[in-house]
């Protein structure tokens, strides 16, 4: 099937077997190998990408179903000399060891910040109806919201600390701007 995949702002015309997952299309057809194939069953989060700004598992998505959607992969988050705030914070806090899960962690955390900003609640949020943006974001909140991303090196303390730093900083920036 012919379709257009819009990835990191660029349109790519591809011709794919309908069975091709979005993950395989990104890696094999578009040569964007930053997105990793871990379990290929939606359990590890290594394949996390953004579709229209929301994080999903690319291994549980058929490419043909995302014709025309805006897709963002880890390659679209920052550049080597222009890291995204999360990428810098992962370096500062040693948020990885082998690095295989890191692209998924970064993309997932990027969307998680948007979800926090939009006031989405989580399983550990005490009050469902309070404006969450006004509440401090605990490490428990970050861990719960990142539970779809596994790290076999167990770098969770560094990952959570990195995300926490960006949450605190972006909140301070927002308050300063207001």
């Amino acid at each position: 099937m012919r379709l257009i995949l819009t990835v990191n702002g660029a349109d790519h015309a591809v011709d794919l077997d309908p069975r091709t997952t979005l993950l395989d299309a990104l890696r094999h057809d578009l040569d964007l190998t930053g997105t990793k194939k871990g379990c290929d069953h939606g359990q590890c989060g290594a394949c996390t990408v953004l579709v229209n700004g929301q994080r999903i598992n690319a291994c549980l998505a058929l490419a043909v179903m995302h014709d025309g959607d805006e897709i963002t992969t880890v390659e679209g988050l920052g550049e080597v000399d222009h890291l995204s705030p999360l990428q810098s914070a992962f370096l500062t806090h040693d948020g990885f060891q082998c690095g295989f899960c890191t692209p998924g962690q970064l993309v997932s955390a990027t969307a998680m910040l948007t979800e926090l900003h939009d006031g989405w609640a989580s399983h550990v949020t005490e009050n469902l109806t309070e404006t969450l943006t006004a509440q401090p974001t605990s490490r428990a909140e970050i861990a719960e919201r990142m539970s779809g991303n596994l790290c076999r090196c167990a770098c969770y303390p560094g990952i959570v600390a990195a995300i926490e730093e960006v949450v605190v900083r972006s909140r301070a920036d927002r308050e300063a701007a207001e």
Binding site: G42, G45, T48, Q54, R55, I56, N57, L60, A61, S108, A111, M112, E115, A121, S122, H123, T125, L128, T129, R145, M146, S147, G148, N149
Partner: peptide, 25 residues
Amino acid sequence: MAVRQRYPLLARAILAGASGQIRNK
């Protein structure tokens, strides 16, 4: 917000399941 205010049971059950990525899809 209508679900969170009036059917918190539903919001809670959904948030207790799967991951952020899966719930989005």
